[in-house]
Amino acid sequence: MKILIIEDEQAVLESILTYFTEEGNICEYASNYLMASEKIALYNYDCILLDLGLPDGEGLNLLEELKKLKKKDGVLIISARHSLDDKLAGLDLGADDYLVKPFHLSELKARVSAIVRRKNYDGHNVIVFNEINVDVFAMQTSVNEQTITLTRKEFDLLVYFLSNKGKVVTKNAMAEHLWGDEMDIANDFDFIYTHIKNLRKKLMEAGAKDYLHSVYGIGYKFGTS
């Protein structure tokens, strides 16, 4: 997928770039309004990561420009402003999602992947990973064409892992993804263990390889290695 990252904070920009750059992905960046405006006009992207607080302009105006250009790029707003107004204004102007800083890169990736999936496969939303097939729209999972039944949380976890395959995903990020950061149980990781244990068991019982690896107690990694 082709992604444009509009972010003025160099350090954050670099991290996102490193995290997103992998085979099949093309990442470009703009660190100010002008640059972003040019890139938006010139190219098409699967998803644009838009930081609202740019030094030379209001990020929300870029959304209006996109609208004027009648472009269908997916937009994810990332903002340090935890403001409901901004969120509503952004979503009103056609943004697909809104993520508040600070965020986990895995969460960002998962959201971007979701946006790109929604944009690209209208209604037919399937993630394929080796023998695992996940239909996000119908919420169905199959291993080697054999359907398995997952709970809602297990399904969410699997989609999350598939969006971040090959990456170490922390328990914090998973907890926040599954329960939201407002539930304030982010320190309680017993739930994560249970869900991961069950997910792994179900996948392996259906004949999938063991893709889930625990990483030093910090988190998990989903991948072939």
Binding site: E9, A11, S15, Y19, R81, F103, L105, V168, Y216, G219
Partner: peptide, 23 residues
């Protein structure tokens, strides 16, 4: 607000650091 940016940096750098295993 001002703290959010450095926090975002720390968070994203930590996430990046985590990918450079093994530890």
């Amino acid at each position: 607000h001002e703290m959010m940016t450095p926090l975002a940096v720390i968070n994203s750098k930590l996430d990046s650091l985590l990918q450079t295993e093994p530890f």
